[in-house]
Design a protein around this nucleic acid. Structure first.
Lengths: 220, 220
DNA sequence: GCCTTGACTAAGCGCTTGCTTAGAGAGCAG
DNA sequence: CTGCTCTCTAAGCAAGCGCTTAGTCAAGGC
């Protein structure tokens, strides 16, 4: 279960965030997005003040509002970029992989690995959706349905080809999503588990969960 | 993925909460705990005001402080009772079940069913740990280690008997916990899935994840 | 009757919140 | 130089926050 201690991993977090936004925004806006992501991840949206974000980005409290209209807009931008990233990543993981078991393994491995690698922004985009405005929430929800669709289609594809035995496709899809998304709750960087190792483990588990019994299972 | 719309299931929630505290507290304190649980589940700890809680419980803002020293004490009491409940439930689910696969199915089914049945308090106790004081957090963390231990031991028991093929017991335990805990994020009461159905589904998936391949799998 | 006890509220205190305003200073075009 | 643009800050506003204070009222012991 390995729950988060209150405000502990604050420092262990900074090092892997910067790259996430490199291709997207120039310096000050990027610094603000990184600062907001870190604060939201540790304290939650409502537990974070705009002064916290400004201070972490090296600005005065008013400096935030030169670049963002509101605190909610910061959350929206983080959510939007994060979900676009995730959707692109899971889509890319299945193209060109035609064998059903390998397609499943590729998808689950990539998606779980992504959640571990980006566990700090993921914590924000998975657990702070309720703080978005209705309009922004609707936009994000559409991206999430895209992710759901990839998982469902990958399972259905394996069922059609006779590679999987699954009577409840929706339930199986929820389970695979749970494995990945819950990483954002328990994962700590600096521990013994690597993102790649978690992806491998979840690929093994997913294969055993769904595959038609025939050849011997890989040990988990 | 089925994310929570911002502040939508507010009303769909009230009906299954009252019983949770019946055996524990008399009327006013119970009403406050229920009100706080509902508000924390929908808006988060930091997004909820003591005025919200008081209003929902039918008291003036000052009425909260007749029964609780602080807002954090409300969260602590909710967390404590919830974790004690969960630990007792998962422990009870394995006693007297000696066949390893059946023990696993009983544990996973009971634990996932419990999370769906009590998804509103679960949302609070799983995702608001970071708002507890350090002392209170430590107390809750001990209960959580007790839950982890039951899951680990159930897996190890099956491995020793040759019923499971598992090389990474810790990873498998995390996966089973993820399936259950993540229910608090996606489950909505009033939908087509019942707590019992989810327990059954997760028991099937867990069995296929861990079991030594021999007899044919149950369809999922 | 009187006094104490305990649940409760009206009012409000001191502080923090998200955000705005007024203006400083740098950079650059002309 | 002047004038305009852009980034940023010092100061602060109105609202909301957790929690306290002073006191009301009903119940119960004597």
């Amino acid at each position: 279960m390995a729950p988060a201690a209150p405000g502990d991993f604050d420092d262990a977090v900074a090092h892997d965030l910067d790259e996430a936004w490199v291709e997207i925004e120039p310096t000050v806006v990027r610094r603000l997005l990184i600062a907001a992501t870190q604060e939201f991840a540790v304290r939650g949206y409502h537990g974070t003040t705009t002064r916290d974000i400004a201070a972490r980005a090296g600005l005065s409290p008013a400096g935030v509002y030169v670049h963002f209209r509101s605190k909610e807009e910061l959350l929206y931008r983080i959510s939007l970029v994060g979900h676009q990233h995730a959707l692109a990543h899971i889509r890319a993981s299945v193209v060109g992989v035609d064998e059903p078991v390998e397609r499943l393994r590729s998808m689950v491995g990539a998606f779980s690995c992504w959640h571990a690698r980006w566990h700090v922004p993921t914590r924000v985009i998975q657990y702070e959706l309720g703080a978005l405005s209705h309009a922004h929430y609707d936009e994000i929800a559409a991206l999430r349905r895209g992710i759901d669709a990839v998982v469902r289609e990958t399972i259905e594809y394996g069922v059609e080809r006779g590679a999987f035995v699954v009577s409840d496709v929706g339930g199986a899809a929820l389970a695979l999503l749970s494995l990945a998304i819950d990483i954002a709750r328990w994962y700590r960087s600096g521990g013994s588990r690597t993102p790649e190792g978690i992806g491998q483990l979840h690929a093994d588990l997913a294969e055993r969960m769904l595959r038609t019994p025939s050849s011997p299972d890989r040990a988990v």
